[in-house]
Amino acid sequence: MRLQYPSNIKIILIPCTGKVDVLYILRAFEKGADGVYVVGCLEGDCFFNNGNFRARKRVEQAQKILDAIGVGGERAQMYNLSSSEAPRFVQIAIEMDEKIRALGPNPIKAAKQKAA
């Protein structure tokens, strides 16, 4: 289909979203990511049964921590779609891009630049 999605989104491949850890999400923000979203298989379709459910819980944990430290939990999101849903992938990418642009840059990135 060769669909276009926002070019500022960096894709990190993992074998299953069950591999995603709270720490991965936090480290991404610590390194300056403005937003992080995890895209897992449709609920009920996980090859490993519950990898995507685990990922959702970890994203929720990360959201709580990000809220508590003033970065904003809404910068981390979880989405589910199947591998054949390219238009939906693009739609999510655009949605996330717009959401993060509305929130503005990651405050940690600015604080780091100021400190340097």
Binding site: L23, L26, F29, E30, I65, I69, G70, V71, I108
Partner: peptide, 21 residues
């Protein structure tokens, strides 16, 4: 070890956000 990593990362970001070194 994992919880150490999560707490340390969260605190680092919190203090950076507060402009504290």
């Amino acid at each position: 070890k994992k919880e150490v990593g999560v707490l340390a990362s969260a605190l680092r970001m919190y203090f950076l956000n507060q402009s504290k070194e």
